[in-house]
Structures are given as C-alpha cells and as structure tokens.
C-alpha cells in the first residue's frame, strides 16, 4: 500500500514551555516519553491523505496529544490511579497540584497554538471536543459505585470521553482545510463514534483478560467499583445475588465461577457478535465517505478500514 508522506512528528519540546517553572518540563518529559502516540499518528495520517501541509499535520498531532495527555493527568488524580504506563502517575511523583496545573497548561497551550494557526472553526470544534471530554469525565466519576448503570448510559459516557478524541482525529484535518460540509462531517462523526465504542469495549474486555496482549491488570475496573460495558453485559438477566457475588470476586476465576463459566463464554460470544455488527456499520460509513473524497484521497478509506480490526481485536 502507498504510505503517505508524514513529517517527523515532535509532540513535546522543552522550548515550548517556560524553563523557570519548577518541575514542569520534567513532568512533561515523563508524560510524553512513553506514550504510543496512536492518536497523533491517526490524525497525521488522515491529514496527510487529504493534502494538509507539514505545519498543519504537526499542529494537529501535537494538539491531540496535548489534549489526550492533559486528560490523563487529570484522570489519574480523579481516579486516584497510582500507576500510568507502568510508572508512577504524575500526581504521585510530583504533587496533585502540579498534575492539575500541568494538565491545564497543556490545554491552554493548545488554544495558543490553534489561535496562532488562525482557523476559527478548528478552534471552535476543538473547544467543543474538550468540553465533551470534561463532561464525560464528570459523568464517569459519578458512576463509580453505581451498580445499576445500563449499557446505553455507559455508551453515552464513552462517546463523550473516548469517542470525542477519535472523532476529532477524523474531523479536524477537514476543518483545518476549511472543508466544513455538514454531510461529510456527519459521516466522519459516525465513524468516530463507532471507533470510540469499539476501542472502549475492547479496553473493557482487557479487564477480563480477553485478548489481553498488553498484560493489563485484570479486574481493575470491578475492584475499583466501576461497572464497565462488558461487566454490565455479562450481568444482564442475572439475579442480584449472583451479581453481588461476582462484584466481590477477587480473581477472574472467582468471577467466572460466580456468573457461570458457560454464561461468561456465551456473553463473550454475544458481545463480540454485537461489536462485529458495529464493525460492519463502520465499513458501511467508510464506503459512504468515498463520495466526499477526491480520487487522490481514496487511500484514506483503506487506511481507516484497518482501524476497526486494530482497535477491537487488538491486532496490529
């Protein structure tokens, strides 16, 4: 496949931040060193395929990583997570105050950089996305300990949090190029919503050691009182006593015994089937995207079509 020509992406540079603020650059150095940069690579690829110049690609890549990492700084403090990417979270290594301020600084930096670029629609859309992200975090925090949350409610929260970033990665390059056709953006929005759902649902499966190639800690969500989308799915139709025993499980084996091994396997198969339908819907939306792209941009469809496999089945 013909690969797009991407500039070398530099997300973080110490020169971008004042050296006289104690520990700020050290914190950012820790933060940006180990990330996979998936979102910046996604937005860069989309931008390159539709003809954005290097300056625009660099701006978009840095913007999404700044926003994503700002949300991680805040999330870790809100959730009291002590580890991030296998290392101490910023709020534990530095202070909670510095973690909050560093996150705020990144968001402010985003606004400075976008303002300098001068595209008002892009600024507006980015601000809306950040607003959605915060709303999602606010609501998700209120769901900790809520054992009655429904799948539809979780989807809406995930759409605000995870989905917002994916939608931005798909839509912002077009806004940056002043391609603001509402029908184009509706298709991109649909694609972004589905990618966000697939990514979050697959992440929720990691909690049950399903396709857990990354070695993520098992039952972390359940133990911290958060009912993720797969937990809610498994619990459908079970009586309260079984759910209560399952919630108290300290190991995956204990959880499976509580809900029934065969019930767990059946629900996993049904969960995968449900998400396969989403993947099919995603493919349908990608085909619709074709009519909005020029002939030279059609490779974008091939790029994006692999994403659903990567995100849900966790295959590279």
């Amino acid at each position: 496949m013909h690969e797009p020509k991407l500039p070398s992406l530099k997300i973080y540079s110490a020169q971008d931040f004042p050296a006289y603020l104690p520990k700020l650059n050290q914190l950012f150095d820790d933060l940006f060193r180990d990330g996979k940069g998936f979102r910046s690579k996604l937005v860069a690829r989309v931008a390159a395929r539709v003809g954005a110049d290097d300056r625009c690609i660099q701006l978009l890549a840095q913007t999404i990583e700044f926003i994503h990492n700002a949300s991680l700084l805040h999330d870790d403090l809100i959730d009291r997570s002590v580890l991030r990417r296998g290392k101490p979270a910023a709020w534990t290594k530095y202070t909670p105050e510095y973690a909050v301020l560093a996150g705020d600084y990144l968001l402010a930096r985003v606004m400075v950089n976008l303002s300098g670029y001068g595209n008002v629609r892009l600024i507006q859309y980015t601000a809306e996305m950040i607003s959605d992200l915060l709303e999602g975090e606010w609501i998700q925090d209120s769901l900790v300990g809520d054992h009655a949350v429904t799948a539809a409610q979780l989807d809406r929260v995930h759409n605000l949090k995870t989905g917002s970033l994916f939608k931005w990665c798909l839509r912002s390059p077009f806004h940056a190029l002043k391609r603001d056709d509402p029908h184009l953006h509706e298709v991109l929005e649909n694609c972004g919503i589905i990618l966000g759902l697939l990514f979050q649902r697959s992440d929720d499966l990691l909690d049950f050691d399903v396709r857990n190639h990354e070695g993520k800690a098992v039952l972390g969500d359940l133990k911290s009182g958060y009912m993720n989308s797969f937990t809610v799915f498994v619990f459908e139709g079970l009586d309260e006593g079984v759910k209560s025993r399952a919630r108290a499980a300290q190991s995956l084996g204990e959880f499976k015994r509580a809900v029934g091994e065969s019930h767990f396997d059946e629900r996993l198969a049904a969960f995968d089937a449900m998400n396969l339908k989403q993947i099919e819907l995603y493919a349908h939306n990608l085909q619709r995207l074709r009519s909005h792209l020029a002939a030279s941009e059609q490779m974008l469809i091939e790029d994006l079509s692999r994403l659903s496999e990567i995100l849900y089945w966790r295959k590279a």
Partner: peptide
C-alpha cells in the same frame, strides 16, 4: 440519584 447517567435514574 447522583448522576444524569446513573443507574438509579433508569
């Protein structure tokens, strides 16, 4: 009810 997305609302 603690949240506009909470289970108790449902």
């Amino acid at each position: 009810v603690r949240s506009p997305s909470g289970g108790e609302l449902h």
